[in-house]
Amino acid sequence: MTSPYQSSNTPADPRHSSRLGLAQRFYLLEVLSGLKLTGLRFFANMARHTLHTVFRVKSAHGAVTIQYPDERRPYSPRLRSLHRLVRRDDGSPRCVACMMCETVCPAHCIYIVATEHPNPEIEKVPERFDIDLGKCVFCGYCVEACPEDAIRMDTGILEFSSFSRGG
């Protein structure tokens, strides 16, 4: 029994080498047609790049690649990026230290220490709210679990390296 992925290189097979013509046996036409396609793409891209860079034709895109990190693709609004804590109008954190995010986090990367809030209408406020990004799996469960909408993952920050040690 032969495998369906195994080629049948038998004389009955039209792809068998004995049934190929002389030019096909040398693969010369195929090599030249491949070089023609590559050359056409090369000179078309070079002409477009010259129009964009030298003659400043803005409608001609300079390169088909994205010049990351100076140029980026538009991100989806649903993208989960680095967390941020939302503030109230007075600047204090909206978080009430209910520990829901710390409890639901599957990576155990959130550490909260609660304390009393000076406003008696607000029960608690986080004294410490640490996220260990080395453990975070960016599942977004903390955002879903938060009853106060105090934590969001909409900063758009994906790279945690920087160009200098000062940020």
């Binding site: 990026s81 967390h83 804590l85 986080p126 260990d132 909409d154 900063t155």
Partner: peptide, 21 residues
């Protein structure tokens, strides 16, 4: 790589097309 409360409070939402601000 631990981010504290002060750091997380200082972050702003991303701009149009998800560009970080």
């Amino acid at each position: 790589m631990i981010y504290t409360k002060e750091t997380l409070l200082a972050l702003e939402p991303a701009g149009p097309h998800g560009v970080p601000t």
